[in-house]
Amino acid sequence: MGAKWSVIPLIEDHLATFRDQRTNEKRNKDYLVFYAAPTGFALSCYLAGFEMRDPASILAGIAVFTALLFGLLIHVFSLGLRIKDDPRQSSTGRTAILIDQLQANVGYAVLVGIVTTTLLIIAAATTGKDQPIGVLMSALIAGALLHLMLTVFMALKRTRAAYHELRF
Rank of each mutant, 00 (worst) to 15 (best):
L69Q: 09
N24W: 08
L79K: 11
L43V: 14
Y35F: 15
D130L: 13
L72W: 00
G134H: 10
Q21F: 09
A142L: 06
L68Y: 12
L81T: 05
A36K: 11
L146Q: 05
V64T: 14
N24P: 01
S90N: 10
L146C: 01
D86E: 09
G134L: 04
K26A: 08
R22T: 13
T118W: 04
L148M: 12
R19K: 15
T95D: 07
G113V: 01
Y108K: 06
L79V: 15
L148W: 02
S138R: 01
F18Y: 13
E25P: 00
I58P: 00
P38G: 03
A42L: 04
L119V: 00
F18R: 06
V33L: 14
M137I: 06
F77M: 09
T126P: 01
V76K: 03
T23F: 02
T117C: 08
T39P: 07
I74W: 08
L59V: 10
F18S: 05
V135G: 00
K84G: 05
T23M: 04
I58E: 07
E25Q: 11
V33I: 15
A109E: 01
A60T: 08
T126Q: 07
I62N: 12
D85T: 11
D30W: 02
A142T: 13
G49E: 04
L120H: 02
I74E: 10
S91D: 11
A48V: 08
H75A: 13
A37I: 14
F18C: 06
N28Y: 14
F65W: 04
A48C: 14
R22W: 08
N24C: 08
S57I: 10
Q89A: 14
G71P: 00
P38T: 02
A96C: 13
I133R: 00
G93K: 06
L145T: 02
Y35Q: 15
A139E: 05
K29E: 13
S78R: 14
A144D: 01
G71S: 11
I121T: 05
P38N: 03
F50M: 14
V106D: 00
L72P: 00
F77Q: 08
Q131H: 12
G93T: 09
